[in-house]
């Protein structure tokens, strides 16, 4: 075929190589290197020799109580923000799917938080959730639902809540757009058939909509789970891990260990465990997707 000619072969390789080299050097190599670093003593004092020390870093990670605190934080963050933004995004998409006028306007406005950078959005939320800030004033003095200012930013679950509210707020638009596209692919006659069978709105949602958009739900689940564990900038900007690392997540804690205490081996082991478990989780989810297709 065409690939037999030498000129064409050279050209094919020339097209592949630049991207491949960049990708290999700056993404694939660091993954492999990460694994190797996780097996070496990489603290400041041993930086030059970097002796192999087996699973010592992993032991240190798993015996560290702070690791378990930040692990729980990351799990809670993901378990709440992922279904939260999916549910609200899907609900918005269903509302949008039923209207004709202003549909684009609503879509554009609701997508704006997605394009707002994490640094800016985090600072806005930090300002709103300040102890003497706007939200507390509203809750206490105007709505009357609290009887004092909530210390959002310097308690464990207060800080995490702010980050979670931000995460949901910022993610709804993305979910809305992909679910809207999925809803438009659900065959209209299925809805008509279910109406004849006497299905109400809820019945249609459970028996027609949900099965019809299963693939997109799984896709969103994979993407958002990875995103949930990738949470970093919002925590760094909103609480900075304070008080006493109680609000840190896996990545902000890993970052602190590496760049503030010089424990690169510990950080590498923690990162590798994360990458591996999320990779496996994604493979399981991909399998589920493929099984559904067959």
């Amino acid at each position: 075929m065409i690939t037999k000619s030498r000129l064409n072969r050279t050209q094919l390789i020339a097209l592949l190589l630049p991207g491949l080299l960049l990708f290999a050097a700056f993404t694939v190599y660091p993954i492999i290197r990460l694994f190797w670093m996780s097996l070496c003593d990489m603290s400041f004092s041993s930086m030059l020799t970097q002796p192999f020390n087996g699973i010592e870093n992993y032991k240190e990670v798993f015996q560290d109580p702070t690791f378990w605190t930040v692990f729980v934080n990351s799990i809670v963050y993901t378990l709440i923000t992922v279904p939260g933004q999916m549910a609200i995004g899907l609900f918005t998409a269903i509302l949008l799917n039923g209207i004709k006028r202003f549909s684009v306007t609503f879509r554009v406005i609701n997508y704006l938080p997605v394009v707002t950078s994490w640094v800016i959005a985090s600072l806005v939320f930090r300002y709103i959730f300040n102890t003497e800030g706007l939200l507390n004033y509203f809750l206490w003095k105007i709505a009357g639902v609290t009887s004092s200012n909530i210390r959002w930013l310097d308690t464990r679950w207060g800080g995490i809540s702010v980050a979670m509210i931000l995460g949901i707020w910022k993610g709804i638009g993305w979910n809305m757009v992909i679910f809207l596209a999925a809803l438009q692919q659900v065959p209209q006659d299925l809805y008509e058939a279910s109406a004849i069978d006497g299905c109400g709105a809820w019945g249609k949602f459970v028996h027609v909509t949900l099965p019809g958009i299963q693939g997109t739900i799984l896709f969103a689940l994979i993407e958002l789970t990875i995103g949930g564990f990738n949470v970093f900038t919002s925590i760094k900007m909103i609480t900075g891990g304070k008080p006493a690392h109680l609000t840190d997540t896996l990545l902000t804690w890993m970052y602190y260990k590496a760049f503030s205490t010089g424990k690169f081996g510990y950080a590498a082991a923690l990162s590798f465990v994360m990458a591996l478990s999320l990779g496996l989780l994604a493979i399981v989810q991909f399998r589920m997707m493929r099984n559904r297709d067959n």
Partner: peptide, 24 residues
């Protein structure tokens, strides 16, 4: 093989690689 690596890196949170990338 190439496509496998592409998918693989898409399912790993980017920030987990920050330590070896900093070394690089």
């Amino acid at each position: 093989l190439i496509f496998g690596f592409i998918i693989l890196t898409m399912i790993i949170p980017g920030t987990t690689m920050i330590v070896p990338q900093f070394e690089l």
